[in-house]
Amino acid sequence: MVALSQERVVSRMTSSVRRSTQPNFDRLFRWASLGSALLVLLVLAGIIGAMIYGGWPAFREFGFGFITSSVWNVNEDQYGAWVAIVGTLSTALIALVIGVPLSLGIAIFLTQFCPPWLKRPVATVIELLAAVPSIIYGMWGLFVFAPLFAQYIQVPVSSVVEGMPIVGTILYARTPSGVGVLTAGIILSFMIIPFIASITRDILDQIPSVLRESAYGIGCTTWEVVRNVLLPQAGVSIIGAIMLGLGRALGETMAVTFVIGNANRLSGSIFDPGSTIASRIANEFNEAIGLQLNALMALGCILFLVTFVVLVLARLLISRVKTA
């Protein structure tokens, strides 16, 4: 009886200590979580503030013309962002056009057709592509891909389309050196494939197998299962993966700097050299002073704005898919 009463006393004391300390731990955990979230917001606000502060003299000097102008003359302190904006959007669009179908094809192959013994090695190789530094992609693109691209793509295509309306303008290379907007877009597509493919594969794997089996049970083909069951179920997550890849494509610096040609001119041909916001900042920031430095900071503000607009559009698209 004495031992039993002692156990009851110990049990009551333990429960009392737990009740007294639990609110303190909960409160500490809540404040730590809040502090983590606020820290990220403060860092982001600091970055935005620094970019706006640094770029404001350029916006004040050139006004809205800074965005619409194609002039970038360091000697005369005349700067315009339009060429870099067009190059950024063009290379990102090309990367999505090439990378998204390949990524979806890889994810569908790994989840629907790939033999079990081959699935793990292929998935591992795809994920390892995300660990390759961007400068390696750039060096490979400049020294290996660009010469082959010029010899086997640019020269033959240019000889065929020369003089054609529209197509001859878009696909004609004046100087087939291998570098240009299309080359940068192709390299970017290789860089975003691991992100989109890995996320899409994981989402497709998480779809309940009963949905697939039910579709096959009523006579659906594999294409019908993928088109009418898997993709609608994973639609929101796939859009998120594509937006993640687009963010990588918009902000990529070193790889694009190597292969885009870094020419400050607008051209109707995707074979011709161009520039992006990130590549221009990387090329000139180290030696920039005065208004040139302010113009580069203003370019950073524009890149942030473009990324923010893309994020907002992605959120709107995801919300429409959820309500559909």
Rank of each mutant, 00 (worst) to 15 (best):
I126G: 09
L38A: 12
G219A: 05
I242K: 10
I192C: 07
I281Q: 03
F64I: 15
Q292F: 09
I108Y: 00
A131K: 06
G235F: 01
S16D: 08
A45D: 08
G54L: 03
G251N: 09
F109E: 08
A95N: 05
V229F: 08
V71D: 10
L38W: 11
S269Q: 11
I67G: 04
A215F: 08
S159A: 13
I67H: 04
V179F: 05
L296D: 07
G49V: 01
Y137L: 06
S319V: 10
V2I: 09
R320Y: 12
G290E: 15
I192Q: 00
F145A: 02
L4I: 03
L293Q: 14
T111N: 14
G219N: 11
N264E: 12
I199G: 00
I260K: 00
S189C: 01
A184N: 02
F66Q: 07
A32N: 10
I199H: 01
A249G: 08
M297I: 02
A107V: 07
N262R: 03
I289Q: 12
D26I: 00
C220D: 03
I302M: 02
I108E: 02
G217I: 03
L34C: 07
W223S: 08
V236C: 04
G63P: 05
T183K: 01
V225M: 14
V157E: 09
N264I: 10
E61P: 02
V125W: 11
G251P: 09
I94Y: 09
L313Y: 03
G138D: 05
M1W: 06
I85W: 06
V9I: 14
I67L: 15
V86C: 07
I199P: 02
A37N: 10
F113R: 15
S33C: 08
G261V: 10
F271H: 11
G87L: 05
I239Q: 13
P165T: 14
A130F: 07
R280S: 04
P101R: 08
V161C: 10
W223P: 01
R18I: 12
V256E: 02
